[in-house]
Amino acid sequence: MSKMLRKGLALAALGLALIGGQAMAASEADEPRAPSGGWNFDGPFGKFDMAQLQRGYKVYREVCSACHAMDLMYFRNLGQKGGPFYDPKYPNPNDNPYVKSLAKDIQVKDIDNDTGDPVQRPATPADKFPAPFPNEPAARASNGGALPPDLSVISKAREGGPSYIYSLVGLGFNAPVPAGLTVPAGKYFNPYFVGDVSSAWHGKGPAPKGGFISMPPPLAPGKVTFDDKTPSTVQQQAKDVAAFLAWAAEPKQEERKAFGLGAMIYLFLLTVIVYFSYRRIWRNVSH
């Protein structure tokens, strides 16, 4: 591509020269795959599997939360309708004893009311999930310069949603590194991670799809012990945490679909009634 074109494009749409220069240079990744059997929360009638959400929360809490914040999540969300630990006996999730005990195990920062000193205290359901790092530089410093993204809406923020998360952490790290690819120190090759590995490619043919990710393989067989005795394979952990993150990205999506069904039926009946009114009113008009 000529320099002139680059310049022209930069002028034409500002900053879009960036796109122009990189669009053809890969930036491709493997199409994310859903686990076999798909997601049971897919489709207009899909619902979350509560046991799966509970396992997924455990994976997040014991593995992901070491580096990834979920700034939009409160412990009470876990006990709200449609949440992993919803109990109809406690319509106010702040009263849910299980959620209370989950929160109590986590320490959050607070200010001592009498002295004004910063203190740590056990969380309550009204507290946010605490962030693992106090600020962005601290997060980067602990992760080799990379910033672990907030996971609150990650399922909506990535093309492919839960299938992307499942593929990235459940399948991608198991894929063998293609011969001829030099993986930089502190990085890991993942075919589902959007990136460009062409500069590190010395093999035959076009560079493989995928990218170098700074996150080490987070999951391992048996790393999380599931309370319901579900075998703790990497794929199981990935599947469950992806479902949990899909729920967390929009905790009211079951409510949305249920409300939608009523709205669609209502609108459909209204449409039929109005159609027959239309036919009746117009029956004597030749047009």
Binding site: R256, F268, V274
Partner: peptide
């Protein structure tokens, strides 16, 4: 005449709109 014809079209349009909003 046209309140009812527009009304019918509006209902069909709302059905499509609702499909996006809810699903």
């Amino acid at each position: 005449y046209y309140t009812v014809k527009d009304g019918f079209a509006i209902c069909v349009f709302l059905l499509m709109y609702a499909t996006f909003v809810f699903y």
